[in-house]
Amino acid sequence: MNNKISIHNLCLSIDRQPILKNVSLNIPTNKITVILGPSGCGKTTLLKSLNRLTDLIPGVQQSGEIMLDGVNILNGNQDLVDIRQKMGLLAQRPYPLPMNIYKNITYGLRISGRRNRQFLDKRVEHYLKMVNLWDEVKDRLKDPASALSIGQQQRLCLARGLAVDPEIILADEPTSSLDPISSKLIEEKFLELKSQYTIVLVTHILRQARRMADYVVFMYLGEVIEQGTPDELFNNPQHPVTKSYLSGQFY
């Protein structure tokens, strides 16, 4: 298996409080890697360290290696804009930018200097169609994005992330604020997208993990307890913590 990202001995602490302890794992190319675990186990922090959003946390300290295509992105001289443009982020709740629908999609393109109107128009249509939002919004592209429903906003955020042409999609419990139908749409989209993108999906929903995963990483209290294919992890867990989590003894 080809690895897009490999993490070696990643430790992260906030104000000396360890959040991630010696995390090592591989994220395979063009697969859905699911990071599973109870609330507060460090899943989101791990995800955000991949595009170095963890830099924003006051009092943060990181050590170890995160190799993206063979380059360590924790190395100080890396260009953050480059790294971040390679990854689209989908957050727990949709946060549309304070501008209209059209500008939300083209934001990433415009700030990197693409201003050709026709090019932007085409991109907007393409990515809105890709997330099945085009028919719903094509007549009101100039409306503020906040006027959309939560489910539509989340699809807009996905389209916005895809529009900068990333290689990786980071998704942090992307369906946790959505209704079942919108959740299903997002999940189906992910299964479609994985042929072109490497997807990292953080979730605490066991059934979602079973539906989506090509590779599963189980975390508990800041540590990777166990990782493997869904078959290995779900059907034959080795570690007692994994066993009790899978049998629903804690969430």
């Binding site: 480059d82 443009q85 982020l89 501008m99």
Partner: peptide, 27 residues
């Protein structure tokens, strides 16, 4: 202004100043 909004802008490849100008101040 929610942190997540800034994260959204940064993860789209905006610099910190662009994020402040286009997102934080706008919001």
């Amino acid at each position: 202004v929610p942190n997540e909004l800034q994260e959204a802008s940064l993860s789209l490849g905006a610099s910190k100043w662009q994020t402040i100008k286009f997102v934080v101040v706008r919001k």
